[in-house]
């Protein structure tokens, strides 16, 4: 299915958010949102993705 991941369109095999992170090689401390809603890490395994979902994966970054 097609997923917009951090603003870029990807064709992925993953069915859940947790699978998507694994498939795209994310590890370490990240936080996730799907279609602009926060998805806690505890719910990533059960969170099923749908075609066209917009997924954001963010990590620590410099800030002021």
């Amino acid at each position: 299915m097609k997923i917009v991941l951090n603003g870029e369109l990807h064709r992925v095999r993953a069915k859940t958010l947790a699978d998507l992170l694994q498939e795209r090689g994310f590890s370490g401390r990240v936080a996730t949102a799907v279609n602009e809603e926060f998805v806690p890490s505890s719910l990533r395994t059960s969170h099923k993705l749908s075609d066209g979902d917009r997924v954001e994966v963010v990590a620590p970054m410099q800030g002021g």
């Binding site: 994310f26 990590a59 410099q62 800030g63």
Partner: peptide, 19 residues
């Protein structure tokens, strides 16, 4: 230290370790 979140492009984990 103030910090932020941005789309993960590979540098986030190194930065976090330094903080």
């Amino acid at each position: 230290a103030t910090v932020s979140l941005r789309r993960e492009a590979g540098a986030g984990q190194t930065f976090w370790q330094m903080i």
